[in-house]
Amino acid sequence: MQSTNHEPIKAVPLRHPIRWVVALFLAALSAAFVIDAAHRSAYDWKSFGKYLFDSRVIHAAGVTLALTALSMFFAIILGISFAVMRRSPNPVFRSVAWLFIWAFRGTPVYVQLVFWGLLSTIYHSFFFGIPFIHINNFYLGFHQTISQQFSLFWIAVIGLSLNEAAYMAEIVRAGLLSVDSGQEEAATALGMSWWTTMRFVVIPQAMRIIIPPTGNEIVSMLKTTSLVTAVPLVTDLYARTRDISAETYNPIPLLLVASAWYLFFTTILMVIQYYVEKRFARGHSALIGVAS
């Protein structure tokens, strides 16, 4: 074709009548729901407004956030450790990691939390030192009664993070497997130790695969914290709003309050995840060709 013939095509765009019909139907349905909800007395929007920024609710939201952050922090550290251990040349590490994942992924988190809550009933005290040897009933070591040592909050953190660590370990393992074996080989040939290879070559590349499902896990953890009532810890967002509604005999607006806070947090997490994913796409995105 001649280069002079550069006129853009003027075609009649394809019509999508069914799309329009479906969209209009859904819009009408949503509008009807919103208008109805706004006037429905059971939702009690006045109470919703009153309790949304109630100091007890805000404090409880903080507890939920702290539970999520701490549990995920420990879960990620442990998860990476277990995943790396499963790839270790050391068979003891491999077996320990396998056993941990088997036990903690194989039982429900609710059941685990109840167990952790009963820890002080099962084990009355905690002793760290040389076993069996004692002089006049005086043991060499550190001795502590469990109920004194652990608050319910930390029991909840331990319970949540150990359970989550098992899932994180599997996510990290998939990430590590995604890294080409030539990478480990090249690092080894440079004289890097196994750990240096993991730390600076394999794990950074695995992050690209690990981050999207981890974001998912954080969102999931935020919601799983509502199960800490099994410990029983009752200061988190869900338990707190439920307690308030037990006083007011009006559960629905407080459920809405809790949901609003959960949604607020998950929305923020989604935004953070977007930026973190971009950061770890280094060297893989056509947009980021040159380091700044």
Binding site: G182, Q183, A186, A187, T188, A189, L190, G191, V201, Q205
Partner: peptide, 17 residues
Amino acid sequence: QRSGIGMVFQKFNLFPH
């Protein structure tokens, strides 16, 4: 020992990150 012996691979194996 390996750090004193250089190796170049068929598929380069550069660290992509």
